[in-house]
Design a protein around this nucleic acid. Structure first.
Lengths: 171, 171
DNA sequence: TTACTCATGTAACAAGTTACATGATTTA
DNA sequence: TAAATCATGTAACTTGTTACATGAGTAA
């Protein structure tokens, strides 16, 4: 079964037309999500795994730069679609750092709670702004996913605002 | 800096009154999120790390079962709060498997897209139902985080419904 | 020619996973 | 007494991270 990174690499090559591992890497690094850093130590071994599994094909260009052009094989396309269309994996909530912490915040003193919530609120606003800026530059495929990310951040923001609203007025 | 698992372990022991590593483990395993399996190979080494860092204290009970009671030290409490209240880490979007796949779905043929979206819709409805069932059994601290999880799933559901709604009517 | 970008890769490490080993206690 | 549960732990493996090494092409 494909890892999330492997699935993402296949879809970058197939739909987004990334040709080299380096371009795939950079597109992860540029993306505003902190999911992956697009680190060489992750991407190159993952590409090698995909090649060995016959899901990616690589061909040298002979440009002196040891550049290899990647393409998704027929088997790779099948594997990618199976990965993308598995509903169980698609709806898992993933690791949500905010959710992990939310219970603790409720236990803090009023003063500390207010400070954390305000800080988180600011960070969320900034995150939403940068997602929207990023979405404007991108193609339809990526815009869909960034839009969803922004919407989810807006729900988190609303949740934080509710908590702030339910607190007694500041002295 | 604490990992997500380490932070979660500290808060389980401190706020939720888990006394043994086994109980911490089980509460992760019982939780509806697929984040962690609460695997022994993750929890016991993490507890050991926290002990060695002076953030958790363990005392044998002498019940013949080699049971060790855990407690959060003063330093552990400080580290836990720093972990919980870091806004940057709290608002990172994490890994959202649905978002990873959403771009691909838009490229599918109408028939396939409709099928995937319907499957995902069903899975989301089930996920929301099980989150709500789970929340009912739990204390305030966990209910807060499960409620948020349910709300985020509802946004994903609304998003899927929008995509379905924007598709041409079935023949 | 110096610095930056393009491009691939490895090494050491971190921190999860599954599967297994071990043994006490409780329950059917 | 057999099976399930409580309880701790290790070993092999997977897959990410950072940091480094290497080298070609390009722009100041």
């Amino acid at each position: 079964m494909l890892t999330e990174l492997e699935g993402a690499i296949l879809s970058e090559v197939f739909y987004r037309g990334r040709q080299t591992a380096f371009q795939v890497r950079r597109s992860f690094a540029d993306s505003p999500s902190l999911e992956w850093k697009g680190s060489a130590g992750a991407v190159y071994p993952a590409v090698k795994r995909l090649e060995q599994a016959g899901l990616l094909a690589a061909s040298a260009t002979g440009d002196g730069r040891s550049t290899k052009l990647l393409s998704v094989t027929a088997a790779g396309r099948v594997a990618m679609l199976a990965w993308a269309c598995d509903p169980e994996r698609a709806v898992s909530t993933g690791i949500d750092p905010l959710r992990m912490r939310s219970g603790i915040w409720l236990q803090l003193s009023e003063k500390k709670r207010r400070k954390v919530l305000m800080d988180v609120r600011d960070a969320l606003l900034q995150s939403i702004a940068s997602l929207q800026t990023y979405a404007r530059k991108k193609d339809t495929i990526e815009r869909a996913s960034v839009d969803l990310a922004a919407r989810l951040q807006q729900v988190r923001l609303a949740w934080v605002d509710e908590l702030l609203g339910s607190m007694p007025a500041e002295p």
